[in-house]
Design a protein around this nucleic acid. Sequence first.
DNA 1: TAGTCTACCGAACGATCGTTAGATAATGGC
DNA 2: GCCATTATCTAACGATCGTTCGGTAGACTA
Lengths: 198, 198
Amino acid sequence: MPNMKDTIKTVAIDLFYKKSYFASGISDIARLAGIQKSSIYYHYSNKEDILFDILNTTMLDLNSSLNQRLEGLKTAEEKIQAAIESHILFHIERQKEVIIADSELRGLSIENYKTITKMRDDYEGKFQKILKKGIDDGSFIKTDYKIISYGILTMCTAVCLWFDQKGRLSKDEIARIYKGFLINGLKKSHRSNSRHQE
Amino acid sequence: MPNMKDTIKTVAIDLFYKKSYFASGISDIARLAGIQKSSIYYHYSNKEDILFDILNTTMLDLNSSLNQRLEGLKTAEEKIQAAIESHILFHIERQKEVIIADSELRGLSIENYKTITKMRDDYEGKFQKILKKGIDDGSFIKTDYKIISYGILTMCTAVCLWFDQKGRLSKDEIARIYKGFLINGLKKSHRSNSRHQE
DNA sequence: TAGTCTACCGAACGATCGTTAGATAATGGC
DNA sequence: GCCATTATCTAACGATCGTTCGGTAGACTA
């Protein structure tokens, strides 16, 4: 017997994912939750409040998921691999929510928008810190770590857009393939100086 | 003196980009175009028709942009570099439209949806063909070319989300950085067999 | 048993939605 | 000077939007 607020949130995630935030009505949510639309306002103060609740918990969970995964790791290579894995797995496991988080920020008021983007920027910052460290200590190729962090993050984020539960590859296989490809791209190639190799 | 249909399309691109398709009203478009909302229906049969027009021309242009850029190229490495560059530059030059194309497919009817996704799949197919060729002839590392094609495409697609006209890097620099990173990731690393190197 | 709180309901609010109908003014061909 | 076409207008349509209001059944508290 789950409480009604959770039910509302769950059906809202479903609707926002399928139809987008603005195309989903309060009455749609109410119908799927099995209550009258006015009852929604007992649990949430307005429509945007539902969206914010979804985005907020998603970002919180994403962040703590990363922190947990990074605990105890030392080298930049270990860390970036763990971060990539954490990011990919979260984006598969929480597919609907992260798709909403990526596409519905325009539904937020200015203050709420700032709250969410602040969390996103902090999260990105952790990836950038790892990359910078790896470049500085010579384990990664010299490159623009900010731009590359965007690249890595968006590449792994987009997994949520095409991942198919019944597809050919499991989430762990996808994480492994991407980790390998990205690490290969980050590490010094045969063409550059080979001080660290051989 | 541009014609009104183009004006409508231009302001619609602006609005859909800023506020999303469903949050933008016909009256918004009309106001910005300087006409009454009923006049919209002289040029477009309904709201979705405007969206489809935007997505359709965007996909057509994206495709012909790639075809042009690939002309005359032979090796997989040349081709994938050219394809990456074409993709990135297009996503910077047509920033607003590609963002709409990436997020507003849910606004289309089933038939229109099929038309657009067909074009997108054909486009993706060209990247996959190049990657497969490069893997088969030994110039790229053995990897899952479908998954990697998604990765490369989404990574380069997402440039449109963070690129800033007044930012630190020009579009050509970004294209160069990404090309370098991705090629490095695709080519055999120092750790694998080195038959092709030295 | 009276009062309070929780979780909902039904009905209505004004505003806006996408769309249509019919009128009109300007233009160009015959 | 007449007719058709083009491009726009005003006015209105029913439907739906997010939100608010007052009411109420049931559970818990004193």
